Amino acid sequence: MKHIIPYIAIILLATVIIYSNAEKERTRITERCQDTFSDAIRTEKKLLIKQFCMQYRQENSPNSLSVEDKKDWYDQNYLIATSPSRHQLDSLFRDGAHKINRNISTAIGYTFNGKNYFSGDESCRKSVIPVQECVYRKDTISTTDIALQAYIHIPFYVPLQNTYTYAVVLMASVALAVCFLYTRRRKKNMTGIPLQELPETGNVTPVIPRKVQTEKWMKLTDGYQWNPQNHMIEHAGKTVILRGEALRFFQKFIVDKHFFLSYSEICRLYHLKEETNGAKDRAYHSIKQLKDNVAELGIEIKSIRGKGYKLLFSHRNRQII
Rank of each mutant, 00 (worst) to 15 (best):
T276M: 11
Q88I: 15
A295G: 01
K138L: 12
G120L: 08
E122R: 02
N113G: 03
T82K: 15
I287A: 01
S314K: 09
I29E: 07
T183Q: 09
L47G: 01
Y309K: 06
A177F: 09
G278N: 06
A283M: 01
A9G: 07
S127T: 10
K288C: 08
G114P: 01
E59F: 00
R42H: 11
P209I: 05
C33W: 05
C267W: 03
R86L: 15
T183L: 06
R282K: 09
P206M: 09
T143W: 05
T191S: 07
R248P: 00
D256C: 09
K291E: 12
E265I: 04
L12W: 10
L79G: 00
G237L: 02
I208L: 04
W73V: 01
S105V: 08
S173L: 15
H285T: 10
E44Q: 14
E25M: 09
K70V: 11
A40L: 14
I208Q: 01
R57N: 15
L181H: 06
I41N: 03
S303I: 13
K46T: 13
T143R: 11
R125G: 05
K216L: 13
Y110N: 03
F260I: 12
Y157S: 09
R268S: 13
K50F: 15
L247W: 11
V255P: 00
H315Q: 15
Q251Y: 05
N116D: 14
E68A: 14
H153M: 00
G114E: 03
I41C: 07
E31T: 06
Y164F: 15
R316N: 11
S38C: 14
A175P: 01
R305V: 11
V212K: 12
Q88C: 10
W217P: 02
L13M: 13
V212Q: 12
A97L: 07
W226H: 05
Y117M: 05
E44G: 00
K188G: 03
H258G: 15
F180C: 00
L272R: 11
T36G: 10
K273Y: 06
